[in-house]
Design a protein around this nucleic acid. Structure first.
Lengths: 152, 152
DNA sequence: CCTGAAAATCGCAGTCG
DNA sequence: CGACTGCGATTTTCAGG
């Protein structure tokens, strides 16, 4: 499952996580490799599934979603299809994790307003009990791994 | 705060969120615009802060982090600097949201193993009570907004 | 927003250590 | 086998309409 990555691979991953649009030429410059060697490394990382994709990061508040919330969902039974279907329908649901503990799922939800959030939580309530926390701020926006684990 | 985006802007955002490395000329093809017009649109979206950056997506399990967990932290008082300092130190903390409710923060933590996770949770416990849920699976990995809010 | 040119980059050969 | 060089095709960038 785990790939063996050397220091150069990690440098590449860190640079591409910071700027996913870096030209391979410039990336090679930063990790002290030629363009072709860099291309080959990146291709292998993609092939191995270490890099799963590249994506632009969009500021939610700038595109009309003023409210971000974390909703925990207590989901009785094990018929999960209806929820999975809703994930595809409601684009306001940005993320869904199945977790251990009393609450089976935590979801991240974006809404234009509190009434909007209320309507989404109402939809989710049909599946089970919900606990909603609105996000004040993000002291740390999502970042990827910055190096190999130092403990294992 | 909110920018006014037309349908073409949204097409661009959706394409770049799906593949952040799309060439501008190919992107233009998909949204029916010339390369230079596309470049200008993208530049404006970046300038306005709608697109905050581009990043490669890395598979955590492939680089040695077998365990992902959500940790909620009950943080008494309002001296937040020590926690913010830890966010910079511990690269295993991938995300941190300040939220309403009993628990002041939710954090996403990556670890190589359960003992590793335990040591990080121990570090966090110095700040206040913690509630940890391990992630089984991600029915929906993070995605960005797919269009303007339909309610608001 | 489009066209069209120069500069940089990409992708693919072949070659070396 | 992994990394470097050279060349044609594509992309990026910037001028002007």
């Amino acid at each position: 499952m785990t790939e063996s990555l050397d220091a150069t691979d990690w440098s590449i991953l860190i640079e591409l996580q910071r700027d996913g649009r870096l030209a391979l030429t410039e990336l090679g410059r930063r990790v002290s490799l030629s363009a072709s060697a860099t291309t080959e490394r990146v291709r292998r990382l993609e092939e191995a599934g270490v890099i799963t994709g590249y994506r632009a990061d969009v500021d939610l508040s700038k595109v009309g979603f003023a409210v971000l919330a974390v909703v925990r969902l207590k989901y009785p039974g094990n018929r999960h299809e209806p929820l999975h279907h809703l994930l595809g329908e409601r684009a306001e649901i940005l993320e869904c994790l199945r977790i251990t503990g009393d609450d089976c799922y935590t979801l991240k939800v974006a809404a234009a307003s509190m009434p909007h959030l209320e309507s989404i939580v109402n939809e989710l309530s049909q599946f089970g009990g919900t606990t909603t926390n609105v996000v004040y701020s993000q002291p740390l926006r999502f970042r990827g791994p910055q190096g190999p684990p130092r403990m294992g």
